[in-house]
Lab assay of single mutants.
Amino acid sequence: MSDQEAKPSTEDLGDKKEGEYIKLKVIGQDSSEIHFKVKMTTHLKKLKESYCQRQGVPMNSLRFLFEGQRIADNHTPKELGMEEEDVIEVYQEQTGGHSTV
């Protein structure tokens, strides 16, 4: 019986991991920090939209990076291997420009 009891508790931990929340720091170019608590399985588009709304800027005017890689709207913290207190960097999107060649 103890084996049966242990097995469901392991499964519960697996389920808990799926719905687990982590805190992420979003740091802007001006070094301002906003902290977000997100589920591991939530699409990061929600975090990006919330950040842009707080900053009063359109979402397409900023780019969000985690460990140097651009974050897509459909990425989740779990897919990117994010952990508690990880940092997302935000930069002004640069458009235009010309070749110097």
Rank of each mutant, 00 (worst) to 15 (best):
G96K: 01
H35Y: 12
E33H: 02
E11W: 04
K78F: 15
H43M: 11
E18S: 11
G68C: 04
G96R: 03
V87D: 07
F66A: 05
S2C: 12
H43P: 13
G56P: 00
R63H: 09
K39F: 00
E79N: 06
K23H: 10
T41P: 07
Q29H: 08
L62M: 05
K46G: 02
L24W: 00
L13I: 11
S50W: 11
E85G: 15
D73P: 01
E85H: 08
R70C: 10
N74E: 10
G96S: 06
K78A: 10
L13E: 08
Q29D: 00
C52V: 05
T42G: 06
V101Y: 08
K17L: 09
M40L: 14
K46I: 12
P58F: 01
E84L: 05
D73Q: 05
K39T: 07
T41A: 10
K16R: 12
E20A: 10
T41E: 04
L80Q: 01
E93A: 08
C52M: 02
H98D: 08
A72W: 00
T95F: 05
M1Y: 07
D86M: 05
Y21G: 07
H75L: 06
G56H: 15
Q55K: 15
G28W: 07
E85C: 14
G68D: 04
K7P: 10
Y51W: 14
F66W: 11
Q55E: 12
S50F: 15
V57Y: 14
V26N: 00
E5K: 15
K39R: 11
Q94I: 08
R54F: 10
V87K: 11
I88H: 04
Q92Y: 11
T42W: 01
A72V: 11
Y51K: 05
E89I: 13
E84M: 00
Y51L: 01
S9Y: 10
V87R: 13
K78L: 05
K7E: 13
G56C: 06
A6K: 08
S2N: 12
E85P: 00
M1C: 07
K45N: 09
E5Y: 13
S9K: 15
E84A: 09
E67V: 06
E49Y: 05
L44N: 01
P8F: 12
Q53S: 15
T95V: 15
P58R: 08
E5Q: 14
Y91W: 10
H98I: 08
V87A: 13
V26L: 15
L80R: 01
Y91E: 06
E89T: 13
Q53F: 15
I71K: 07
R54A: 02
Q94C: 11
A6P: 12
E49C: 00
K45T: 05
S61Q: 07
M59Q: 02
T95N: 06
I22P: 07
K39L: 07
E18V: 11
D73W: 02
E89C: 00
E11N: 05
Q94D: 05
D12C: 11
K48P: 01
E20M: 12
H75D: 12
I88R: 02
K37V: 01
R63M: 07
Y21I: 10
D73G: 02
Q29W: 14
E20N: 15
A6M: 15
D15R: 12
Y21W: 11
K17C: 08
R54C: 09
L65I: 11
G97R: 04
L62G: 00
E49G: 06
T76H: 00
I34Q: 02
T42I: 04
S32R: 12
R70K: 08
Y51T: 04
Q29L: 11
H43L: 12
C52P: 02
K46S: 06
T100E: 07
K23W: 15
S9T: 12
K16V: 10
E89V: 09
I22L: 07
Q69S: 12
T76W: 04
V87I: 14
Y21D: 06
E93V: 08
M82V: 02
D86F: 00
K25C: 03
E93D: 10
M82A: 03
S50I: 15
T95G: 09
G14Y: 15
T76V: 01
K23N: 09
T76R: 03
T100A: 10
D30C: 00
H35I: 10
G96M: 05
G68T: 02
H75V: 07
L65Y: 15
T76K: 01
I34L: 07
D73N: 04
V26K: 04
A6S: 11
G19C: 11
G14R: 11
S99E: 08
T42H: 05
K46D: 05
V87Y: 14
L24A: 03
S9G: 10
G81M: 00
S50Y: 04
L65V: 12
K39P: 07
K23A: 09
Q69L: 07
V26T: 08
H75A: 11
D15Y: 08
V38G: 01
K17D: 11
H43Q: 11
K25S: 09
S32V: 15
R54K: 06
E83V: 13
G28A: 15
D73L: 02
F66M: 04
G68A: 00
I34N: 03
D12M: 00
T95Q: 00
V26W: 02
P58M: 00
P58T: 04
R70H: 15
D3R: 09
K39E: 04
N74P: 05
G28R: 11
E84H: 04
E83Q: 06
F36H: 02
V90N: 02
Q94K: 07
L13R: 13
D86V: 04
K7R: 12
Q29C: 08
L47V: 08
S32K: 15
T41H: 05
M40I: 13
K16D: 06
A6I: 12
I34C: 04
G68M: 00
M59Y: 10
Q4I: 12
G96L: 04
K46W: 10
V101F: 08
K16N: 11
E79T: 03
L44T: 01
E93G: 08
G68V: 02
D15V: 12
D12V: 12
P77E: 04
D73T: 04
V90T: 14
M59H: 15
G14P: 01
N74F: 13
K16W: 06
N74I: 08
P77R: 05
V101N: 07
K25D: 00
F64S: 02
K78G: 15
Y21K: 11
Y21A: 07
E11L: 14
I88W: 01
L44P: 03
S31N: 12
K16C: 08
G14S: 08
Y21N: 09
N60V: 06
T100I: 09
I22G: 05
I27V: 10
E33Y: 10
S31E: 06
T41G: 09
S61L: 09
L44A: 01
T10W: 13
L65N: 06
K17V: 15
E11H: 10
Q69C: 11
K48M: 06
M82T: 01
K37E: 03
Q4N: 14
E67W: 10
V26D: 00
S99R: 10
P77K: 04
D30Q: 06
E85L: 14
G28M: 05
K39Y: 07
A6C: 14
I71W: 01
S61D: 05
G81K: 06
P77H: 03
M40Y: 10
K39I: 02
Y51P: 03
L47G: 03
S32Y: 05
P8W: 07
V87T: 15
Q92C: 13
S50C: 15
I34W: 00
H98A: 09
T41R: 04
Q55A: 10
V90S: 08
V38D: 03
D3Y: 08
I71C: 00
Y51S: 01
E89H: 04
T42R: 05
S31M: 00
E89G: 12
L65M: 14
G28L: 00
E49S: 14
Y91N: 05
G28T: 00
Q4F: 14
V38K: 04
F64L: 05
E11M: 14
S99Y: 08
C52N: 01
V90P: 05
E84Y: 11
Q92P: 10
N60P: 06
T42N: 02
M1R: 08
T95L: 14
M82L: 05
H35K: 11
E93T: 15
K48Q: 01
Y21E: 06
D86G: 13
Q55W: 08
E67K: 05
R70I: 11
R70P: 12
M40P: 12
E79R: 05
T42L: 09
V57M: 08
Q92M: 14
E67L: 09
R54T: 04
L44V: 00
M1N: 07
Q69V: 05
I22T: 14
T100M: 09
E84K: 13
K37T: 03
K39H: 07
Y21S: 12
T95E: 03
S9D: 15
K23L: 13
E84N: 06
K7C: 06
